[in-house]
Each structure stands twice: as structure tokens, then as C-alpha cells.
Design a protein around this nucleic acid. Sequence first.
DNA 1: AAGATGACCAACCGCAGTCAC
DNA 2: TGTGACTGCGGTTGGTCATCT
Length: 396
Amino acid sequence: MRKPSSRTTQAAAAVGGGDGGGGASSSSAAAVAANNNNNKVTPCCNKIGLKRGPWTPEEDELLANYIKREGEGRWRTLPKKAGLLRCGKSCRLRWMNYLRPSVKRGHIAPDEEDLILRLHRLLGNRWSLIAGRIPGRTDNEIKNYWNTHLSKKLISQGIDPRTHKPLPIQQAPPPPPPPPITSINSPIIQNNNILPNQIQVPTTSNSNYIPNNNSLLEFDQVPTLNYQTCLTQLVDHENGNMDNNNNISMIQNGAAAAVGVGGGAGESCYEGQISNEDDQEQDDMNYCTNDDVFSSFLNSLINEDVFNSQNHLVQLHQQHHHQPHQQHSMINVVDQNNDHHHLISSSSSSTQAFAFGPAAGWDHHHASQNMIMAANPTAAFHHHHQNDHQVEKPHF
DNA sequence: AAGATGACCAACCGCAGTCAC
DNA sequence: TGTGACTGCGGTTGGTCATCT
């Protein structure tokens, strides 16, 4: 199984040394030729004699001491200043994945594992995003853990680790035909690794319709969130006018979302902020940025308790007021062309507590016909644990 | 005991986004 | 507006160790 080692040769020759900064690294003649053809060799990659391979304790000490003195950044010049025969990229990697004080190493707890599973179902192989929600863990560590443990675990459970859907069963009868559908043009929804060319929404009025693809939105389970204000800003920011040419619009009307959590449009998006980080992060969340929105969104999605609490409040509200309540969902959208994510807020009204979908009526006043829906985070979490030690319950 | 195999994971690679000039 | 440097990301490689045959 062990593959022939080429690393020693690479280290000795160090042709095109460094670790590929700017994508120009190579250690093979073919790659060197390609570099020459591309005429895109960064200075870092021209340097020879750079050390590769595992770091020694002495190198670690040099790097750690330098960063303690000078701080992170300026990776290109850091090795020389720190007295290291490494390229900046290697130094950065070593620091980020190993030497950083905040890095938590060792056994991944069941709670962390559960969180990884949830986030992966939601985000796919976006390891940095996943790692960002698991304090002390690096994207590399999570990626490795996924590839060596979790993917195998899911397979052993009959679940496709890429889609989080049941693996196909041999000799199984063909699935029943789906209900009539109406094609919706791109953009694409990313549903983990599924990137259909067309997103399809049933035209049936059956509100109980549930897509065959169980990763699609389950209309009766939609999280109620209160980030519409920030989402509006987010979508505006990321997509300019976000018109029909982009096929992404759908800013819901912002009225009285998220019962008991914050308030209506215009309020701070961190009213009722859900946090799974420390107090410092809580303190830092006094303003609204795209990252914050996404962070808050993830916090909400990974917290079933929050969702359940909100559902309960919605139910209470309806019991007392006997009127439909506006529901909001968050949809993760990926532009087909640029792979950018867009968090989209949707709204609908229904006389049922959590009805959501075609019968309840998509908000076509605010949603482009080309809008998409997918990535039901709640559905994604149905079968996971009730508790998330990472997340605090919001204060209502 | 020794080689083969598998698991783990640190490190590398190449690409893309962002920013300064 | 174009270019290059810098940075970050996800995929992949390969070294090391444990277990199997």
C-alpha cells in the first residue's frame, strides 16, 4: 500500500522549491516545463534549498517565537526573518494547523463528531467553514477525520457520505415517479455535492409533498429565523441588484419574523443572538457583517433546541392569535458560475404552524421565478442528537 | 521475524480570490 | 485595467506506525 517515496528526491533537488505558492510549484520536469510555459513563477517558488517535509522541534520553536514577537502574516518574508529554511506557505500551514495556541489536538469528542456531521450535511466539503464552527479544530484536522473516520462510518450505516442520503440498494425497485414539476432555471442550489442543472419545484398543490431527494426542503420543517435584515444586506452586497438576470432575488418582506426572537425588520440581526463561541465572540457580535450573518445562520441551524423553542413559540403565538404566522427559511444558494454562496431568506404564510411550500405559497412578490430552494438544514439534523454543547439557547 | 497491508494525518500542491500598485 | 504578490482553500500525497499474514 505504501507508495514509493518521492519526497526525498524532491527535498534533495528542491527544484521549483517551496510549496506551490501561486500554483507554480513543481518537482517534476513536466511541471517545470509547464511553469516555463506559463511564465508564472513566483519568487518563492524559484528559491532552492528550502526544507520540506516534517517540521523539527527547533523549527517549530523558531516559528512560534517569531510569530509571538511579530505576529501573524507576511508569510512570504517571515521564513527569512525567522531564520527558517521554509517557504512562507509552509510556515503558515505549520502555524495554522499545529503551532497556534488555540489549536486543540487529540481525540474528537462525540459532540464534535456530531457537529461535523451536521455541518457537513449542510455545507459539504467546506472544511474551513466547518472548522470555523468547531473551536480549536482546524480544517485539515476535520478533513482528515472525515476522510478516515466519518465517511467510512456513514458508509457502514448505508449512507452516502457525499450526499448524506441512503446508499442505493441493489435490486431495489425503481422509485415512484415524482409529482409533476416545473423547471426553474439556474442558479444552482448546492445541496451538498449535488449541483443539478435545474432546480425543480413541484407544481402540485399538495402541501404534503416531500421531494424524493430527502435533502431538499421538507416543507413542514422550516427553521424560523430572524436574520432577514442582515440577509437583505447580505444578498444586496454580494449580488448587487440581484435581479432576475442573476436569478437570485427573493428578499422577503421582513415583517414580524422570528417570533420571540428579536423583532421585525430593522432591528439588529443579533437580537437574540445565538452563540456557540466564547464571550469574546459574543462581544464582537455587535455589528452586522456577512461573516457574522453566516456565522449566526450556522449557529441557528446546528441548534435544534433553538429551532424547537422557536417552533414552540410559533405554535403558542398561533394558538393565541388564531392567525397565520409568517414563516421564514434560510436557503443556501450557490451560483452556478462562481460557486458563491448566497443566503436567501424566504417567507410564506400558512394556517398551519409550519406549513411551508407550494401550498403555502412561495412569496412570489419577493422571489424571482428563478429562485431555488433546497438544503433543508432542519431536515438535515432530524436524526441527530438533541443537545449541542456548543450552542447556547437564545434568551427570549 | 519479516514483509504486506491498512490507518492515520502532517504536509504539499495547485487553484482562485483579493488587494496594492 | 492589468499584473503580481499574498493568502486561503480543498484535494491529494506520502511518511510513519500498527496490525495482519
